[in-house]
Each structure stands twice: as structure tokens, then as C-alpha cells.
Design a protein around this nucleic acid. Structure first.
Length: 477
DNA sequence: TTTTGAGTTGTTCGA
DNA sequence: GTCGAACAACTCAAA
């Protein structure tokens, strides 16, 4: 007569995968019976609509992957530290393992859980797995994180390759079943109205889909990535961001796969370096969040606390709905609404437009992106909005005001991207597609500006001057 | 400690 | 049409 195997709880968070999951691997190797748990913690920043949709798909996929190994994914809702500790106590678990995902409330919750487990005498295993380099290993003066990207990234690169990714555990014992919510209980997906059709058409969540996206990228778009990533009219990006956001694939896996590809094909070495530096930006943002838990609400540069933002609900709505009259901006905002994503180049132009042309607080834009992006990330989203607004770390200089017409002509030269998302002006010539207001009535060919497509809500030249004047008030003197 | 050079992604203007 | 300079000053990182 043998005693039953001890129970090990694996607490999943933004790491919804089985491969390269240090907490899972460690628990599986211990020979314990695993209890896999995901907690929806509503005391954290509530997920946006698009993220909720993605999370539902991703949890469904993870649950299926676990089921194929004989395990179940237990779903619970509530304050995470309390819930996990309670389950650990009630099941008599020997240990709780999790990965140290660096999200703002996530860290405090993990610290609280560790304290509760210590009180209960249950072993806590916090594993490194989310980052290429832990924040504690990249420090500047007085132990602070670095604030400029290039030295930051050079330091990370100088550390050499991160650890090799772990394989998914082949088999592990499953703990006896305990009560679980169902995904339907959580109402993560829209029903009436069901607005998720565009998301379903463009995305597939889950670890297997993430691995397929990576393979597709390395077989295709990686060649030429350094230049094509800036072209919204081409399929030049990796499309990995939402997978990375929910941890369906890890940055270490991407690092090693890309490096391996570059070793096999020297011609793409520069493209791979560029791709890795994009991973570097994700890393940089996470380190920033580590040092600034209120990144989404507080200006990193305090001088911006006195910036003269305006309040204009009509302008905000026009921006959200893609009705600013600037085709590149509007195409981006409609791409976002329809597909849950927006091309990186267009994100910068659209964000710059909100902040500099409309003088609306960057937090308004951050909140909209948070709600509508499937890759809305607690670190990258606020950090990049602060970068655009000029109040962030290593921020864009105040005088960089994107001209939406020039950006369109440069990065969408045939207008293909604009025509895809703004069908009402698709008939305009390439010469006019980025500035329809300059067309003669004959050239407009049936489009009535101000009716089927709006007039520009601000004049670029006027708005630029106004922005420069507003930014002058923030100068330190 | 002090100094020095640099800082993701631009635009406009005038020669 | 092309090209270089101006657009500010400041903070950061490293020598």
C-alpha cells in the first residue's frame, strides 16, 4: 500500500503554454501529481474586450493540450493570492510553482502568495521564464533600470544567449479533480452583439498556432523584415505579438529559433537582428514596468504633469471610429476595430495624431488600445504611448510630429492599405489617396467629402504649430 | 568625479 | 529636385 503522490500546483498566468514553461517542467520532474490552475483576478486591471476574447481562445487551447496529457485546467475567479493559497491548503498540496511574469499587479500578487504559502508551510517555486534577462541583472546607477534603449539592449546582448527553451513535459500525473468554473461562466466572449467575427477571421490563439506563426515567419517574411516591417501594405511582420502577450510562446523560444535560422541562412542575419531588437523593446518595456508599476497612469517625466491636454469627446470619437479625414490614420483605426491589431508603423502615426494633432491625453489613446488590441500588453502599451507622447523613457523628441500624408506616401505608396480599410475612397487615384481633400470634384469620382468620408478634422499645418506651442510649455526652464 | 557623446521609427525650410 | 541644417534642451551611460 503506497501513499498517493504529493500534489504540486502549477499556477498559470501570462504563460499559457506547455513548452518552455519552467514552473510546469519543474513540477512535472518532481514526480508529483499536477494541479493546473488559472485564476481570473478582477482586482487587477480589467482586460479589454479584445484581450478577453483572446484569453478565452487561449485558455480553451491550453485546457485541450493539458487534457491530451490527462490533466485538467482548473479555472477560478477572485483575488489570485488568496485563491491559490486556499486551494493549496485545501488539497494538501506540497508545492506551488509559477513563472515570474513581470506585469504590474502580477508581481505584488505573487509576493503576497509567497508570504501566504510560507505561513502555511507550503513550498513556493517562482521560476524565471518570461524574460531574456531578469531586471535585477540589468541595472544602472543606484540599482535603477536603464532608461535608454540602446545601452539597455547592448547590455542584454552582451550577456549572450538566454537559456535554451525547455521541451514540453511528455507526461505527468494529474491530481484528483477539484471544482472549476467553466469558461462560459466568465463571459469572456461577446454574444449580443457578437463583434468577434473579425477577430476569428484574422487570428487563431493557442500554443500550436503560435508555433505555426513562428514557422511561417521564419519560412517567409523574415527575409526582408528589416525594411518590410515598416510597410503596412505588405505582409512583412511576424504577427506573433498576441501569442507573446499571453505567453503562448516565449521570447526565449523566439530568440533561439531566430538565431538558429540566421546561422543556417547568413543572408537574413540583419533581418534577424532587427527582429531580435523588437523583442528587445518588449523586454525594455517590461523592465520599465518593473521599476514603474504605475506606468499606465503616471508620466515618467513629471514635467508632463502640467501639459495642457485638451478635452474634446467629439475628436476622440472621430479618432476611435477612424473618421479623422486622414486616410492613413483612419485606415489604422479601422484595422484595429475590425481585426484587433494595427500595423506598427500606423500605430505610431495614429498615436502621434491623437496626442499631437488633437492634443488629447495619451491615456485616452492607451485606454482605447487596451480595449481593442488583441496584443494589448500591460508593459508595451503604456510604455509605447508614453514614448509617442514624449513623456516616456527615451521618448520621441517634441518636434517629431508625424505628417500623416507623408507617412502614407512613404509607407503605403500605392495606397493599397488605405483602400483595404476605407472602401468608400478606394476609387481615388494613388496621387490623391492620402489627401482626398486636394481633389477636384471630378477627381473625387462620387465621393462627397464631409458625407461618405469626412473632411480633415484638423489642418496639419495648424495642428503642428499648436502642438509645438503646447510642448514648449513643458520645457524645463 | 567630471566630461563627453549620444539618444528607434521626422518634418520643414531654405540654399 | 536634392541636401543639410534647424528644431531645445536635457538626461543618461560610459569613459
Amino acid at each position: 500500500m503506497s501513499s498517493p503522490a504529493p500534489i504540486a500546483i502549477v499556477w498559470f498566468r501570462d504563460d499559457l503554454r506547455l513548452s518552455d514553461h519552467p514552473a510546469l517542467s519543474q513540477a512535472a520532474q518532481s514526480g508529483a501529481a499536477l494541479l493546473c490552475l488559472y485564476v481570473q483576478d478582477e482586482s487587477a486591471r480589467p482586460l479589454g474586450g479584445a484581450s478577453r476574447w483572446w484569453l478565452a481562445q487561449s485558455l480553451r487551447s491550453l485546457a485541450a493540450d493539458l487534457a491530451s496529457r490527462g490533466a485538467t485546467l482548473v479555472l477560478r475567479r477572485g483575488p489570485a493570492a488568496g485563491i491559490v493559497a486556499e486551494i493549496a491548503r485545501d488539497t494538501g498540496a506540497a508545492s506551488v510553482s509559477w513563472n515570474d511574469v513581470a506585469t504590474a499587479p502580477g508581481r505584488a500578487v505573487a509576493d503576497e502568495l509567497a508570504a501566504r504559502l510560507a505561513d502555511l508551510g507550503i513550498a513556493a517555486q517562482c521560476c524565471q521564464g518570461d524574460l531574456l534577462a531578469a531586471p535585477s541583472t540589468v541595472r544602472g546607477k543606484e540599482g535603477r533600470g536603464l532608461k535608454v534603449f540602446t545601452p539597455f539592449w547592448n547590455r542584454v546582448l552582451a550577456r549572450g544567449d538566454p537559456p535554451l527553451p525547455l521541451p514540453a513535459p511528455k507526461a505527468f500525473g494529474a491530481a484528483p479533480r477539484i471544482a472549476s468554473d467553466t469558461l462560459a461562466d466568465w463571459r469572456l466572449e461577446p454574444t449580443r452583439p457578437d463583434w468577434a467575427g473579425g477577430l476569428r477571421a484574422h487570428w487563431q490563439a493557442g500554443e500550436a498556432a503560435a508555433q505555426r506563426s513562428l514557422q511561417q515567419f521564419l519560412d517567409g517574411a523574415v527575409a526582408g523584415y528589416a525594411g518590410d516591417r515598416d510597410r503596412p501594405d505588405r505582409a512583412g511582420t511576424s504577427r506573433l505579438s498576441p501569442h507573446l502577450r499571453f505567453g503562448e510562446i516565449s521570447s526565449r523560444q523566439l530568440w533561439h529559433a531566430a538565431r538558429f535560422a540566421a546561422a543556417e541562412r547568413p543572408a537574413i542575419a540583419a533581418d534577424v537582428d532587427k527582429f531580435l531588437s523588437e523583442l528587445g523593446w518588449r523586454e525594455f518595456c517590461r523592465h520599465l514596468l518593473f521599476d514603474n508599476p504605475d506606468l499606465a497612469t503616471r508620466n515618467l517625466q513629471p514635467a508632463f504633469d502640467r501639459f495642457p491636454w485638451t478635452t474634446d469627446p467629439g475628436a476622440l470619437r472621430a479618432w476611435q471610429q477612424g473618421r479623422t479625414g486622414y486616410p492613413l490614420v483612419d485606415a489604422g483605426m479601422r484595422e484595429l476595430w475590425q481585426t484587433g491589431a494595427m500595423h506598427n508603423r500606423v500605430r505610431m502615426v495614429a498615436a502621434s495624431f491623437l496626442v499631437k494633432h488633437l492634443l488629447l491625453d495619451w491615456r485616452c489613446g492607451e485606454a482605447w488600445f487596451w480595449d481593442t488590441l488583441v496584443d494589448a500588453d500591460p508593459a508595451s502599451n503604456p510604455a509605447n504611448w508614453q514614448w509617442v507622447a514624449g513623456c516616456g523613457a527615451d521618448a520621441a523628441p517634441y518636434f517629431r510630429v508625424f505628417n500623416p500624408v507623408l507617412q502614407g506616401e512613404k509607407f503605403d505608396p500605392e495606397g493599397d492599405y488605405v483602400r483595404r480599410f476605407i472602401p468608400e475612397i478606394a476609387g481615388l487615384s494613388t496621387k490623391l489617396i492620402h489627401q482626398p481633400w486636394t481633389a477636384t470634384p471630378l477627381e473625387l469620382a462620387g465621393v462627397t467629402l464631409g458625407d461618405s468620408y469626412p473632411q480633415p478634422i484638423v489642418d496639419h499645418r495648424v495642428a503642428r504649430q499648436r502642438a509645438l506651442a503646447a510642448y514648449a510649455t513643458v520645457r524645463n526652464n
